[in-house]
């Protein structure tokens, strides 16, 4: 479990996070949603430890991130998998080498065990036969799957995804969403997904946090989001014509 308690973060005069309290549950896909500029990405990077909070604390289980030794922080990072918005795959490495990289860097596995692990995660994200291809030779959807495979190769306790659907067609986006939810449930990870995509919210949002102007405004499940009476959530969720029609249908 990850707990964010009273997180405050500013960049100069720009106060981005103004005291955010959220609990992220293991075995669930925890989604952070909100408009651009609402502080989602800064919040995610603060939880990851890429930004130091100006106030508040981040708890990984019983440990406080800010109080961890350098060594412990380093080992914690090996318990974290991250799927970046653009994939962030290493251009100079093939698909298999990208997935194998964390194992080469940190694991004490034998070469045979590493091969087996790479094969397992590639099969798990349905990337069979792509091992020798390079990132520039595969589609955006496949790049996201490679990114997910690399993120879970070390069997992490925590999975972070920054807008994993951006730039994907709706069908591929749903495949990626379902994959994230499947592996979260299967491996019992605490997964945090940063997204704009309402389809993702409804598809996989076990726990949804809505942020606005550096505050947590609402939280609930994907089933509750459509029925929320919070004005900010309503304004965000029912902005599109499609969702306005969904609301009308729900009220009938």
């Amino acid at each position: 479990m990850i707990q964010a308690k009273g997180i405050i973060k500013s960049f100069g005069e720009n106060h981005v996070l103004k005291g955010v309290d959220v609990d992220f549950y293991p075995g669930k896909t925890n989604l952070i949603i909100g408009r651009s500029g609402s502080g989602k990405t800064v919040f995610l990077k603060t939880i990851l430890g890429l930004f130091e909070p100006d106030g508040g604390s981040i708890h990984y289980g019983d440990e406080v991130l800010g109080e961890m030794s350098k060594q412990r922080r380093k080992t914690l990072r090996q318990e974290i998998g991250m799927v970046f918005q653009g994939g962030a795959l290493f251009d100079s490495m093939s698909v298999a080498e990208n997935i194998r990289f964390p194992l080469e860097m940190f694991s004490a596995m034998t070469e045979h065990e590493k091969d087996a692990r790479v094969k397992f995660v590639m099969d798990r994200v349905r990337l069979e036969g792509a091992d020798q291809l390079f990132p520039s030779e595969i589609s955006g959807g496949m790049q996201k799957r490679v990114s997910i495979a690399r993120a879970i190769s070390m069997n992490p306790n925590y999975l972070f995804c920054d807008e994993p659907n951006s730039g994907l067609d709706p069908e591929t986006a749903i495949v990626i969403d379902q994959l994230i939810q499947e592996i979260t449930h299967e491996f019992g990870m605490t997964t945090i997904v940063n997204t704009h995509d309402m389809n993702s919210v409804l598809e996989i949002g076990d726990h949804v946090v809505f942020m606005k102007e550096g505050h947590k405004v609402w939280e609930g499940t994907n089933d509750e989001v459509l029925g929320s009476t919070n004005a900010d959530v309503e304004d965000y969720v029912f902005k599109s014509k499609l969702f306005k029609q969904v609301r009308t249908a729900l009220r009938k």
């Binding site: 890429l50 080992t75 990072r77 795959l89 290493f90 251009d91 990289f101 972070f160």
Partner: peptide, 15 residues
């Protein structure tokens, strides 16, 4: 290029 495409961030996140 590695910096702007977040490849360096990916390395940092891995530790």
């Amino acid at each position: 290029t590695m910096r702007v495409s977040e490849q360096i961030d990916a390395l940092e996140v891995m530790g």
